[in-house]
Design a protein around this nucleic acid. Structure first.
Lengths: 114, 114
DNA sequence: TTCTGCTACCTTGCAATGCAAAGTATAGAA
DNA sequence: TTCTATACTTTGCATTGCAAGGTAGCAGAA
């Protein structure tokens, strides 16, 4: 599967990760797989971890280390109320963007000429 | 209408503008209005003009000045074959992104854990 | 004429963010 | 041991939206 261009993911990945967390606690390395399953492509760790640190610093998520049965400890993150607000805001913004794009795509064929 | 966050527009505006041009020749100042009509919000000129110069430099669009009946000259741009290829590529990328987001939104709470 | 406002284009420099690259560490298999 | 997969972290760069400021043409009002 082709990767979505990085410039196109800017500002969207952050919201996508918050939405994934809204559906259940997760950890950095696991996000990599979840994002790929959803169709976002192979998002590198150099993208995911700094983003998680930023979200935590912003008070939108909280992380706790837990041991894993199969390897090193995992740092599980879950949303704070602030993070839940961010999810709501992001969903609205996404819908506005998707709506504008739909208008642009749909409109193809029936534009007026002067 | 709220503005879509600038980070969320990165890489999308460029494609959107190419798509608008695929539907008919246009000029910088007019794009401002077209984008607003489509729902992209109030995209400032400091965004639009540098982007047009970049697209022209990349050989994806070509611009020609024409006098306007109501004010200063306008610089009308139209797609080159390279620009048409870019539109096709962008549409595929957008559909992948939109598909991934739809999967994320639809899928509410049913991803697997290990 | 001069002033005001709309149209129309251009440039500089900054802020945000995805990511390549490199490093560290744990656990199990070869 | 060595290798592989898992798991987290950091540094520095490239890209791009945009605020801010500038230039200029045209029309109507004063």
């Amino acid at each position: 599967m082709d990767r979505i261009p990085s410039q196109m993911l800017k500002g969207i990945l952050e919201g996508a990760i918050l939405m994934i967390m809204a559906q259940g606690e997760t950890y950095g390395y696991g996000l990599h797989e979840t994002l790929a399953d959803l169709g976002f492509g192979d998002i590198p760790e150099g993208t995911i971890y700094p983003l998680l640190l930023k979200l935590q610093k912003n008070g939108q998520i909280v992380g706790v280390r837990h041991p894993s049965a199969t390897g090193p400890d995992r740092k599980y993150y879950h949303l704070t109320p602030l993070g839940e607000d961010a999810v709501t805001a992001f969903q609205g913004q996404w819908q506005q963007l998707a709506g504008a794009m739909t208008a642009l795509i749909t409109h193809g064929g029936d534009h007026d000429e002067d």
